[in-house]
Every structure is written in C-alpha cells, then in structure tokens.
Design a protein around this nucleic acid. Structure first.
Lengths: 183, 183
DNA sequence: CGCCTTTATGCAACTTGTTGCACAACCGCT
DNA sequence: AGCGGTTGTGCAACAAGTTGCATAAAGGCG
C-alpha cells in the first residue's frame, strides 16, 4: 500500500510526468522508496482513475507525448490519512544477513570478496547522501518541511553508516579465521 | 530468490517439518528472514520436486500428519553456489521514512504517537535479541559457525539500535516544533 | 461418544514488484 | 529524406509475498 502514497508525496512536492517521477525515484526519493518506471506508470493510471490525481491538459495528448500529473484534494486527503494511520514495521528480510548465515553451514568461499564489494557500494552511497546533505540542508535554514526532510535523509545516512560498520566487523570476523571454506 | 535458500539453510541447521520451520522463521530465523507458513509449504513442495530436499519416510503419510524434510546434496550445492554468488544490495524501501516525508507535505498529525509506538516495538525487539545473545553466544565459545551466527545476530541488534536512535531524534524534531499539523 | 482445541498441511485469489519488450514522437545529422 | 539516439509511455508475463480459508488428525474432557 505504499507505492501510491510515495507517488502522491512526490507529486505534491512537484507535479511531474511519469518519466520525471522515475528519475526522482532513482535519485533523492530513492533514499527511502524505490520504484521502476513500469510500476509508476501502472500506478499513475490507477490513481487517475480513482480521482486522486489528474493529468494536466496538454495540446497533443498522444502516445510518446509527455503527460504531467497533479494531485487532487481527494488524493491529498488519502495521503494524510495513510501517513497518520497505524502501521507496524515490516518483518525483516535481508539477503546479505541470510547469506552469511548460510555461509555458516556451507562454507565461506567467496564471502569476503562479496562483503568487500558491498562495503564499497555502501561507502559510495554514503558519500552521495552526505553530498546531498551539504547541498540541501545547510545549517540554520529550518522550516518544518526542511527539518522533516532532513530527518529522513539522516535516516538514510545512518543506515548506510550501520552497514559500513557491520561489514567492517564482518570482514574482520571472516578474514580473521583462515578465510577458507568450512565444508 | 531468497526464500528457498533460507529454507535450505534452516533445514541444514536442523531437519524440520513445515510447521517447525514456520516457528523457527517466527523466532530466531526471523532476525534476518521472515516467511509465513503458506510461503514455506509452497516452497517445500517446489524444493522437493526439484530434488533439493526430501521428506523423511513416515509411518502414516497423510494430510494433517507431520512431514519432516532433510536437505539432499543437490540442495546443499545449490545453497553454496547462491551464498557465494554476487548479488547487489536491494533498493531501499521503508514505509516509515516515506510517511515522515509525506508528513512534511500533509502535516504531522498523528505522527508523534506513531513514532513512539514504533520506538517501543524496536526497544522490545532489541531486548529480545540481546537476551538471545546472552543465552546463545556467551564469550569464548567460538567455533567458526558460532562467530558467523553471532555476526548475523549483531546485525539485527545494531539495526534495532539504529532505529531506536533515529526514532528518538525524530521525536525530538517533531515534538520540538509545536506538534500541530502543518497544512 | 460427541465436542472443542491444538497441531499440521495445504489451496486459491489477490497484491506487489520485476523483466523484457513494443511503440511513438522528437532531435540532430548528413 | 533516411538514420540513429533520446525521451516518453505503455503492455504482458512472470516472480514473490499476503490473506483468507479448507481440511484433517490427535488429544482432552464431560
């Protein structure tokens, strides 16, 4: 139930076309919610049909032609209701932790390389986020919106920091003991 | 592609029936991978058909009758291959961060209560994990398996710690500024 | 015995997310 | 005009996960 609300949030921040949304979901929005263009187009269709958003009138409404959407009052109300409703945190599901657990029974061959690769990826991601923090949230430009958005970005930054710390620990643990398979 | 491998890992650690697996996925296994009983039964069927696991022979093989599974060599090989293969971290997708971002545009009504609720849940989860750490990983009982499993548990513990820290920050941010809606 | 609860397995329908591809307009180039 | 790249929208098929319910054996109890 989150994708439509992610789209509503993005469109409220700035009306966009499908492709523009896709790009925003690949960049800043992607810190907390990712989506492919197909998901987005499909959902835009549903949201338009349900009256939550509408396409801005265009001169040439045809295939291959840009179509901008804006949020209607019904959509904003729906988003507000969803954001304040109670929702439990979702169950944990992380492939990397699972793979380490699997390595405990079938051997650690290949594991250190994979951990190092992930470490590098997370370091790059962290740098990216910190760049955005410097650019978009300089000290003392604090509307309520700024503070909340900064808070979300801090979540992304601290999550990446967590992974970097954990991967470093993991590499010490795995490299520390032979580094050969167990099996 | 993770669920079958989660099941193989669990079965290698200890052969089990569907319901036993479900309980293990609700408890310790759930730190890094969760699954419902329907997912598990469906997947057990597929794994058995593909020759990765087999049901241990039973006197009364009938519906409503317990059926234990064990991993076959093919299954173990498949798991080892999967665990050492390259897999990118999955794209971030967190409803709570999204809801805070949505609150930045539609108002923070109801948000503090929800943040406090999540904080309490994560604190309870952390306590649980720390209890397991004390019970299952006392200092200096270190086989390679122990170290790797402890590492995975540490991941769970540090993730919960991250959430507790972030939610505390978030509450300071939200409560600090009126606590009324924005809109 | 008949009834209820617990243990145990499983189907079907649905929702969400992924992958691969098709189609169409526009732009610059030669 | 014809070609190729970019921008833009979209379908179809599939894979993964969720929800609700059906079925059946076993054990306890009056």
């Amino acid at each position: 139930m989150s994708l439509p609300h992610a789209i509503l949030t993005a469109l409220l921040e700035k009306p966009s076309s499908g492709l523009e949304l896709t790009r925003r979901f690949d960049k800043s929005f992607g810190f907390f919610w990712s989506a492919t263009h197909q998901q987005i187009y499909r959902e835009l269709g549903k949201l338009e049909q349900s009256g939550a958003i509408r396409a801005l009138p265009s001169e040439t409404p045809a295939r291959g032609q840009k179509k901008e959407y804006e949020v209607l009052p019904a959509g904003q109300a729906e988003l507000a209701a969803w954001a304040s409703a109670g929702q439990d945190p979702r169950a944990m599901r992380d492939p990397l932790l699972l793979r380490v657990r699997a390595a405990a029974v079938v051997g650690t061959a290949g594991l250190p390389a994979e951990l190092r690769r992930h470490l590098a990826l997370h370091e790059r991601q962290l740098e990216l986020y910190e760049g955005i923090e410097r650019r978009d949230f300089p000290p003392e430009r604090d509307s309520e919106q700024d503070r909340l958005r900064h808070l979300v970005l801090r979540g992304g930054i601290e999550l990446e920091t967590f992974w970097i710390r954990w991967l470093t620990q993991a590499l010490e643990t795995v490299d520390g003991e032979s580094g050969t398979g167990a099996e």
